[in-house]
Nucleic acid binder design. Structure first.
Lengths: 217, 217
DNA sequence: CATCGGCTCACATCATTATGCTACGGCGCC
DNA sequence: GGCGCCGTAGCATAATGATGTGAGCCGATG
């Protein structure tokens, strides 16, 4: 008396990934591939036609993006669970996805086994999320509820570190910062290393993005 | 030298559980028991005194309850991570805890191994939650949020270029973009060169900054 | 059908960043 | 008065990014 298979629909514009996801799901007992599409232009008709229980939705797609696709699905069929797939743990998108009613949020690099777990999890009423994303969701939460302008610690950055982060945001290079502040290039490196640790990032672009999105400037 | 041990502070009014948690943590390499207290009456002084990296906080305690303790910790020391422990997946408490800035939310029945994982997870910037609680958090999230929309200035960027700029903003490296989009590294270079020309910038950081500030995402 | 822009790819070279380790003076806190 | 954090600094190596030049394919447009 097996339960009927869980019907899974994939939206993913990268053909390689789409195919490997399809194969993964198709080859798993208890799951049934309802479809695997490269865009969500026809999402409104796809859903009633394919009747998925769970949708895996890539966030970054040309044309109608995943967030928009999510909204349309939820508008038509609120009961359908939608798990967002993304390469980034980007704050803004997480926020948008969560607001639009996403039921889970995973990174594309999630190993296949975890992905299958996640599908079962949503089916069981859970909400699969990577730890880092879960953290972001928690951080996002209090703000809309209580828009306190709390000058809560700028992510623990020291005054000097904030200053330098500000310059990064302005597009300054290490050299420019060193010259501008009259310190050595190596000192700039030191500061930036610490900023990276504290912000949990690994590149200037990530730091800039995080700074701008979290108002650390 | 090894990384300094993670200092963990426990608030748990049940002596049995408090002791077994203490033993669990005390016997784990990389963790250091900063303290194990039966109430959070002195939370304001406990924190600076014991300087924990992570606090495990029982929600249901006599006197000052866990939510209140959490608030006080966050008021004094926003950088300290607090993981709530609870017996029930009660909606209202989850809501309150999340609003007060909890960094994780686990059930007391969580197996010891998972608990240790969770501590490492918060330390690494994650937010351990049980799936069911994660789902509640998502549901609690205020939906009526009007996402700003700007279809205004495509800034002359082609669709592909905007797409790639989006990835840059997310902190993607050339390599990651190439892999994700299934194109060669050199093609990524080409696109980015053109993006730079069109935006009049000369580095990833400038491009990211400009993109975020002008809503090109 | 010829031209043009967008997308793809290659090769080359130099500049900049990322990361790890080490170190020292100053300051505030037990 | 020892400990930890901040700001400063240097050195070394590996990885990534910036820029130039050139080229093939395709679809749209004139």
């Amino acid at each position: 008396m097996e339960a009927p298979a869980t019907r899974v629909l994939i939206y993913e514009d990268n053909p390689d990934l789409r195919i490997s996801l399809s194969q993964l799901l198709g080859g798993t007992p208890g799951l049934e591939l309802a479809g695997a599409l490269g865009n969500c232009q026809q999402v409104e008709t796809d859903i009633p036609r394919l009747r998925p229980d769970v949708v895996l939705m890539d966030i970054d797609m040309p044309g109608i993006n995943g967030i928009e696709g999510l909204k349309r699905i939820k508008a038509k069929s609120p009961g359908t669970s939608v798990v967002m797939l993304t390469v980034f743990e980007d704050n803004d998108r997480v926020f948008q996805a969560v607001c639009a009613g996403a039921d889970g949020y995973l990174l594309k690099k999630t190993p296949p086994a975890k992905l299958l777990d996640a599908i079962n999890e949503v089916k069981a009423g859970g909400a699969p999320m990577t730890p880092a994303i879960a953290r972001q969701v928690l951080r996002l939460f209090p703000k809309p509820v209580a828009p306190r302008q709390h000058e809560d610690s700028p992510a623990n950055l020291s005054a000097r570190e904030q200053e330098i982060l500000g310059l990064l945001v302005e597009g300054y290079s290490y050299k420019m910062i060193a010259h501008d502040r009259g310190i050595s290039l190596d000192t700039v490196r030191s500061h930036i290393k610490k900023i990276y640790e504290k912000l949990h990032v690994r590149s200037m672009t990530e730091a800039v993005s995080k700074a701008l999105r979290q108002g650390l400037t």
